[in-house]
Design a protein around this nucleic acid. Structure first.
Lengths: 194, 194, 194, 194
DNA sequence: AATGAATGAGCTTTCATTCAT
DNA sequence: TATGAATGAAAGCTCATTCAT
């Protein structure tokens, strides 16, 4: 298994840094190789091509991201608490790794459509987690029964994603995590005064 | 005024089509010129460089998009109706111009950070429209008084954007506009059963 | 006769200025047209192509240059005085027109070999003047009888040319004309202490 | 050290030939690469850009040229003999390498002002050699004591340069080296019959 | 005679990928 | 495994020249 080889991880970490620092289009393979401390050719012993590095970066990082969230919400008692925990962890994990935040919110979106499909595949488990929370909430009678799950998922993910992107674009000048509570309220209560 | 010159518009229209069909990075200037029926050099009489074409495409198209919405919501009586109208028009306008939808939701996001800043500038008036609807809703007592406007704006825009992107990525196999009602309800009522 | 038309001269004068200011390779036809106050296309009513402008500039300016010298030396009594007058006028005329000096000493040399042949043709009358001075000096018994005329011509022209080029490259920080006497002595007396 | 790498020299030699045959402006990088038997991209492993090839050609070739002359005149007994040796070697070295002669006398002069400055720097040691010969001749009492050294240098270099240029432009139809004696006499004795 | 919008050929340079060592 | 020198395809942009008005 490639993943246990040290160079594989060296290259992944180097790629995140190089892309965050230079942007996607200025991230030449040779730059990543240099930062990783390996020869250009060595990259191709571990990755099929440049795109494969990108996909792998996303798989590795997003895998951890999702695993962390999945585990954490298991301890929560109901859908509401689980949603809140998800929001908090989504924000806190990206807050802690600014390089990764820049890469996921800005640079990775510059890739071509084929790569986008791959990225969506990696994202799928995360979206499934959201779906299951919504479903659970409906079952528990906490959320309205008539919810269109894919639509709700798009609202939740779209809101979180947009919020993080804004924070990255504002150069992280405020505390993202402080917005978790309000975002949760907005999603659950909506705009209307009841 | 350049904008009245027919070639300017020919090139804009050709660019939208070429980018939608081939993707941003496979859209050579020569391809755009050919589709527009002009010489390569002619492009540079109307646009500073390739990036300028992209920016101009977005300015032109988004300008119309925003103007249309701004006018339409003026006739509505309250914030709720205005928000609904905005959602409907956001969806219907992109539904009617699939090329444009592909460009705005996928291809334009592949651009570099400088271009992203430009794009954000163009988007600003739209975000301001959303803000003013929220503010009006609070004043009218329709929306909760304590709303954090930037956050609400991110929820609304994030939700619409994610919904359209999903529709584009699913290759527009369903009617986007049919989701307007539900999206509106989700945004205003939230998830919670009250 | 084209030469009497005002636009012809406007373009010639504009070309000298533009080339002196921007250098040969940054002197686009459109820049010359703009400085001359005519349309790009108008240039081609008076000149066959860009190279023809260059050649004409040289013909016009060098023609005056040579005529002036030819006339002036007629009043001199012997070859020695004629040579001195030639040196003085060569230096003084280029001193008075720094734009022209830059063009003849630096920019015109950047042209291609075909143009160089043309330039040599224009220069021929000047070289002939030098030849005749040398011949006269030999006949008068002032110069040595055994002189190889082409070689002497190359020494005289080469020395003057190199001297002017150095002065231009040193950004004309000293008085070129003050060197006329010494140059004349060097050419006639040589280096040797007799 | 790059200079020992065979490809570096292959490219330099190819550049001299291609420029001599096609002229500076018709010497595409791809043509030089082909003649050198390397890929286009390889050029850029050894040279910063096209201009850098030119500068390097001049540095390499002129360096050898100057070294050769500097060494040879050390064995000569006085300034007069040294000057004669310099003239002979200046002529003979360019005679032996017609490609180089074309490049130095014609093509290199087509370059832009920045490159010209570089060329002047490379030439400086040669001019210094000339200066020191003149100075020595004055000290030895062979040359007149009152000589203006920069001016003498301009006469000597200007004469040699013009002589070589004429020979190149006449397509080398005569033996340049046969003129060395006469040129030396002209420079030392001048025109005047004493 | 004059205009100037339009043309389109032409070239340097980058960089992902390969392969001999 | 690992290296890194070498490859070569690919594309944005300029500008001399033309020609319809």
């Amino acid at each position: 298994m490639k993943k246990n080889k040290p160079k594989y991880n060296q290259i992944i970490e180097a790629a995140v840094e190089v892309i965050a620092e230079n942007g996607y289009h200025a991230s030449q393979v040779s730059k990543i190789a240099k930062k990783a401390g390996v020869a250009d050719g060595t990259i191709y012993l571990y990755f099929k091509n440049k795109e494969d590095i990108l996909i792998s970066v996303f798989e590795e990082k997003m895998g951890q991201f999702i695993n962390h969230i999945t585990e954490a919400i298991q301890n929560k008692n109901n859908a509401n608490e689980k949603l809140y925990e998800l929001i908090q962890l989504h924000f806190s994990q990206l807050s802690k790794d600014p390089h990764l935040a820049v890469v996921t919110q800005l640079e990775l979106r510059q890739s071509n459509p084929e790569l986008r499909l791959e990225i969506n595949n990696v994202l799928k488990p995360y979206l499934t987690v959201i779906d299951s929370i919504v479903q659970e909430g409906m079952k528990e009678g906490i959320f309205r029964n008539s919810l269109n799950i894919p639509l709700v998922r798009q609202m939740i993910f779209g809101t979180l994603d947009e919020t993080v992107t804004n924070w990255v674009m504002k150069e992280r000048k405020y505390q993202l995590i402080e917005q978790a509570k309000e975002v949760h309220t907005l999603l659950t209560e909506g705009l209307t005064l009841s």
